[in-house]
Amino acid sequence: MSIQTIKLKKEHTHDSVKHPDGSEISVHQTDAEWLITNGIGDLVKTKKEAEASPDKDTKK
């Protein structure tokens, strides 16, 4: 099971630790999916992932 980094959009308690909004936490993939699905956080891309993905913000 892989570990994902999530940036919290709102305060959240994980493993009995309260994390304020804006915090980045590392969680198992299933927990990350739950946090994202429930609008609690967003996946943080690694530098390598960000460089590999095409830039959606193209200006003409």
Rank of each mutant, 00 (worst) to 15 (best):
M1Q: 10
M1Y: 02
M1T: 09
M1N: 07
S2K: 13
S2E: 07
S2D: 12
I3W: 03
T5R: 06
T5H: 02
T5Q: 05
I6C: 01
K7E: 15
K7D: 03
K7F: 04
L8R: 07
L8D: 11
E11C: 06
H12R: 09
T13H: 10
T13M: 13
T13C: 13
T13A: 15
T13S: 14
H14N: 04
H14M: 04
H14C: 02
H14P: 00
D15R: 15
S16M: 08
H19C: 05
H19A: 05
P20L: 05
P20H: 05
D21H: 09
G22E: 10
G22F: 06
G22S: 06
G22A: 05
S23D: 15
E24Y: 00
E24F: 01
E24P: 00
I25L: 01
I25A: 00
V27N: 13
H28T: 14
H28R: 11
H28C: 06
H28N: 12
H28V: 15
H28L: 10
H28A: 10
Q29L: 06
Q29N: 04
T30V: 08
D31H: 08
D31R: 15
D31T: 10
D31Y: 06
D31S: 08
A32T: 08
E33V: 14
E33I: 14
E33Q: 12
W34E: 08
W34T: 15
L35I: 06
T37P: 01
T37Q: 06
N38M: 03
N38S: 06
N38R: 09
N38Y: 15
G39C: 03
G39T: 11
G39H: 10
G39L: 07
G39S: 12
I40T: 07
I40W: 11
G41Q: 05
G41Y: 02
D42E: 13
D42P: 02
L43V: 10
V44T: 08
V44H: 09
K45C: 02
K45N: 07
K45I: 07
T46R: 04
K47L: 06
K47Q: 11
K48C: 01
E49F: 12
A50R: 15
E51C: 02
S53I: 14
P54H: 04
P54D: 09
D55K: 15
D55T: 03
K56N: 13
D57L: 12
D57F: 12
D57V: 12
T58S: 07
K59P: 00
K60Q: 09
